[in-house]
Design a protein around this nucleic acid. Sequence first.
DNA 1: TCATAAATGTTACATTTGTAACCAACAATG
DNA 2: CATTGTTGGTTACAAATGTAACATTTATGA
Lengths: 150, 150
Amino acid sequence: MTQERAKTSLSDFLPFLLFQAAEVSSRNFQQHYQSRYGMLRTEWRVMFHLGSVGDQTAKQICDRASLHKTKVSRAVKALERKRFLKRITIEADRRSELLCLTKHGKTAFSELTIVASNFDQQLEQSLGANDHKTLITTLQKLIALPQHNT
Amino acid sequence: MTQERAKTSLSDFLPFLLFQAAEVSSRNFQQHYQSRYGMLRTEWRVMFHLGSVGDQTAKQICDRASLHKTKVSRAVKALERKRFLKRITIEADRRSELLCLTKHGKTAFSELTIVASNFDQQLEQSLGANDHKTLITTLQKLIALPQHNT
DNA sequence: TCATAAATGTTACATTTGTAACCAACAATG
DNA sequence: CATTGTTGGTTACAAATGTAACATTTATGA
């Protein structure tokens, strides 16, 4: 009876664990970008992306961050309104624009980056350097996986 | 200049990785409970919980699944409407009710459990049994962590 | 080159979610 | 016991999100 092998506990079902871990680990963070800069999660995500990867088009952000284009579109609009970023026309292809952090945006980014870094170090300490490292590489592996066609 | 040590790439920033991994790993799954049973993600989560842990009150589900009570409340209502679960009055304390999967609900649960199990096995294969196992235990550790007060 | 298709974003509308107010049942305190 | 507070759950309203239709620009190809 291999049926017994079937998952009857969700405590070790990966999608659930990942969801919970993501929740827990981002909840603390939220208050920083929210209370201090009035940003939403998606806005912070877009900003972090621009700040760390560099200027990009919306499309590129969508692809790299696994975010839907409407989400990005709205986040960009909000960030623009708050003067965190500006758009630059790309003459070669006028469908998309290059999104760049303003000085103000860069300031916010670097401040939040420091918080993020501290946070990460705390986590590293709690988990132990080894597990921390393994966790990261395993997650990267998981994300890069060709779509699991269940 | 230790500033260089600061995260300038988000590729290894845990909250982002977790979010993406959670997204990727649950997206496939979605189509199963959605197309076949018309369930939303939260509904599926509640059902899975009841199915694997056993009958529970809404409160218990909230706590164990890290879900907000309004989310659970609405999911329960929806599942009830679709005849996946029923409520049983608890005489000892009439504030809460015990939530139980109906026969119909149990059928759905066990079918979805099989899919989940296959999915998990695929993942285990892709990641390797070792990494898979480590990932799970590390995530559990992370979730159980006292709130990281950044 | 003209028509058609595809890519990039935006917007409108419906659905889902979060926050706060609320109700009912119970607990604790005077 | 009243009275006050707490807990479990629901609901109303506002905010965020997803889906689908749309506009605009670029690519394709007869």
